[in-house]
Structure formats: C-alpha cells, structure tokens
C-alpha cells in the first residue's frame, strides 16, 4: 500500500489509506454491488477498498495496466479466488442483495448464476456436445435427452456456433479453432442460464477476426445477461461496453460511461493510460 502511494504520488488519495474513486461507480438499481472490498494474497494486498456497482444487462469493462488487479477483482465476483489457498477477500459483495460471501451461499449455486469465460479457451477434452451439456448435467437442468439436446442447440445457436458444428457435435472440442473454442466456452457458460457472465480477457488469445466475432457475440448477449469483461484492449472496451472501470495498482481510479472515459477522462491516471503514457 505504501509502495503504491510512493510510486504514484498523484493517485487520488484524500485520507491516508483511503482514496476516492472518481466518476460514477454506484448505480440506482444494480445487479451486483461491491462495497469496501479488499483482496489479499497472503500478506500482499492486491485490491484496495473498491466500491462498484454492476448494472442490470450492462456490459462493464475493466481496464488497466498488467497486475492492476482487474482479473483478481473479477474472480471475486464468482468466488473463483476461493480456489487459491492464500487468497483472502474482505468486504461486502452482493448479487441481487444476497451476500455472496456469506456462509449460507453455496458456491456451486453462485457459479451457476455468475458464469465465467477465461482468457485462454479451455474446452474440456470431450466432445463439443458434452462441453455444452456438462453444466446442465451437473446442475440437473434437464430431465431427458430431448431437453438436453434442445438446450445444447439453443446455446450453440445463441453463440453463432451451431451452423459451424452441428454436423460434428460428437467430435472433440479441442479440434475447433481458437475462436470457435472460445465461443464454445461462452455457449457452455450460458447453457447453465447464468445471470451474470464474467469474461477474463476473452479475446487475448484470438486473432482479430475471431475477436470481432466474439465481440459481436458479447454485444448480442448483453440483451439478456449482465457482463463484466476484463480486457487489455482499450478499443475492445470502447466497442463492447457501456461503462468502463479503470484500475490502477489495485485501486479503482475511475468509473464512467465508456464514451466519457475514452474521450474525456476525469482522472489524470486514466488519461495517461488511455493516451498510452502508462500501461
């Protein structure tokens, strides 16, 4: 924390240890609320006291230089950080007013409601069909094969993958191209019927054409889902998201409408980042 302040004396720090996020981090009718959230890896603090709301059916992108904690923050939202032994999350995180870190919450159920798509396409080494059907199987969403088939088809159609793979559903998913694999991972995530989808740099391993397809898909999905996307590409953030959050060294510096962040950033650090002076 101290190092953070030393290296960035210009960071917006009002009281020692407390800083103010500029812009509009809070919303009226949010889907998820994050209050006073800090994350520690053993003794090292990775996220400092973040307050942020994620609105219903919005796409919010999180940008910032490498190691700024944006992925860590994202992984708090469906408790993927639980899998890391030394990771500790403090604060109040709510999904529809339910504390997701309370003892009453079953993390299995939470992850069904808050799905996730990872940086590198990571289909299971099973068939395309099995990949999409897996979530439905473990959560018991369908009663019979017909319903399952329908669900798989519906999910693949929504991801624009159906026409490409309908003739080879039983073939291994790892035989697909990178972009197809990533769309398959998205289809797999939406097959469970989540409310929020977290995407951790979903296009960083894809070529520009595949990236465009996935961005198009994100845009379509935002009609029904709340999407939080971490990205390295500012162009991508500008293209897909309505709101943008800028993280810097574990602090949430600025949250605003995407157009405003990229045209008229309020904070000096945001401006330096988007103009390429840091990052």
């Amino acid at each position: 924390m101290n190092t953070a302040q030393k290296t960035n004396p210009e960071a917006a720090v009002e009281i020692p240890g407390k800083y103010q996020t500029v812009g509009h981090p809070l919303l009226d009718d949010p889907k998820m609320t994050v209050r006073s959230t800090s994350v520690f890896y053993a003794e090292k603090q990775a996220i400092f006291d973040v307050d942020l709301d994620i609105g219903k059916n919005e796409v919010i992108s999180m940008i910032g230089p490498s190691g700024c904690g944006k992925s860590t923050f994202l992984r708090c939202l469906n408790r993927m950080n639980d899998t890391i032994d030394i990771c500790r999350v403090e604060g109040d995180l709510r999904l529809d007013d339910e504390d997701i870190y309370s003892k009453k919450i079953d993390v299995v159920e939470l992850r069904a409601r808050v799905g996730m798509v990872f940086q590198k396409p990571n289909p299971f080494p099973k068939s395309i069909y099995e990949n999409v059907a897996y979530g439905a199987r473990i959560h018991g969403l369908t009663d019979n094969k017909v319903q399952l088939d329908e669900l798989v088809e519906k999910s693949l159609v929504r991801c624009g993958l159906w026409n490409e793979v309908k003739d080879r559903l039983e073939e291994p998913a790892t035989g697909l191209s990178g972009g197809q694999q990533q769309r398959l991972c998205i289809a797999r995530a939406i097959a469970v019927g989540p409310e929020v989808i977290l995407m951790d740099e979903p296009c960083s391993a894809l070529d520009p054409i595949a990236t465009a397809t996935v961005e198009e898909l994100i845009h379509e999905l935002s009609e029904n889902f709340t999407i939080a996307i971490v990205t390295h590409s500012m162009q991508q953030a500008a293209r897909v998201s309505q709101r943008t959050a800028y993280f810097h060294l574990g602090k949430l510096i600025e949250v605003n409408e995407t157009s405003q962040v990229f045209t008229n950033p309020e904070h000096k650090l945001t401006e330096e980042y988007i103009t390429g002076r840091i990052g």
Binding site: N78, M80, T83, V108, E109, L110, R111, A112, G115, M116, V117, F118, K120, N122, P123, F124, P125, Y134, G135, I138, H139, C185, R188, A189, V192
Partner: peptide
C-alpha cells in the same frame, strides 16, 4: 492436468469432487 481444465469446471459450478472425478481423473 492443466489447471485451465479445473478452472473451467469450477467456473461452471462443478464442485471440487465433480471437478476431480469428471475431469482431472480421466485425464
């Protein structure tokens, strides 16, 4: 077994045991 497989399963809401039995063990 690549950790990405475990993450994928956990991210889908598979429990630890399901992750191990369905994905890690076969691989």
């Amino acid at each position: 077994v690549p950790p990405s497989i475990r993450e994928a399963a956990m991210g889908m809401g598979a429990s630890k045991v399901q992750t191990v039995i369905h994905h890690v063990l076969p691989l």
